[in-house]
Amino acid sequence: MNTQPTWAIETSGLVKVYNGTRAVDGLDLSVPTGLVYGILGPNGSGKSTTIRMLATLLRPDGGTARVFGHDVTDEPDTVRRRISVTGQYASVDEGLTGTENLVMMGRLQGYSWARARERAAELIDGFGLGDARDRLLKTYSGGMRRRLDIAASIVVTPDLLFLDEPTTGLDPRSRNQVWDIVRALVNAGTTVLLTTQYLDEADQLADRVAVIDHGRMIAEGTTGELKSSLGSNVLRLRLHDARSRAEAERLLSAELGVTVHRDSDPAALTARIDDPRQAMRALAELSRTPLEVRSFSLGQSSLDEVFLALTGHPAEDRHAEETAEEERAA
């Protein structure tokens, strides 16, 4: 029992089919213990289906999935003793107070009433929720709720924590708090599987990242490796008049020497560049023409851009699908 398996999660050819669609399509995932592993992918990429299978909530249709060496289908109870799940897959009780939620979680995991209450109080204080301990959860702000959600997941510190888009919709301060909590957990020895739509978040937290699309893994590695496969900066440009986009595109691609992409916004262009000075020169050139630029920005690659680079198609959010529809119609 003392020899900890090297892998927190190992899946092999994992498949889940919904109405004839392969939501997860032969996924091979190996997550080492003791680090934060990020799964990046747009909505509908198979992220949540994968996590639901790993968390024993959903039965795989094919392949195998093991958590600390235990098969999720054959030994769900053993797996459940090692994991915790937060977020959209497993919520907290809005009709109870913060303290009551934590007491309930402690009781269900085998604590006595006294110890469960003690543990709840410790966690409430540790997570800075002291003022709200006796308030119903439905009155909590987004950040407080997220913190309580994580607290509920670590009443008994899990060996593996599934964190589902932990900072979506949070303000920057709450987001930093959540990130600190995740780091503290990993320092204490918990392995964290994080799903996110933000490359920035994966960059901040994850040691390794898998990018998945259509239920398949399309890239895997450290965030550094992932980004080095792309240009390091992205120039985004929005024109005053959508009709002048073709001309601006010509000018920019000539000046930057890279392919300029047409954004789904008809007045916008994006380009990946290696050196910010290229962008400055191109913008200076642009300012000498009659073309009017409404705004521009220089930043890191977004997940959309990672996707564009890795798959040749944009992340299929609703917006992108609409664009695809329009293109077909045209």
Partner: peptide
């Protein structure tokens, strides 16, 4: 670094304490 919660948090991690199944 950023929040006090992060520091206090370390003290509340139950450090491998694992009660018997309910």
């Amino acid at each position: 670094s950023t929040t006090a919660a992060g520091g206090r948090l370390r003290t509340v991690l139950s450090a491998g304490e694992r009660p018997a199944r309910a």
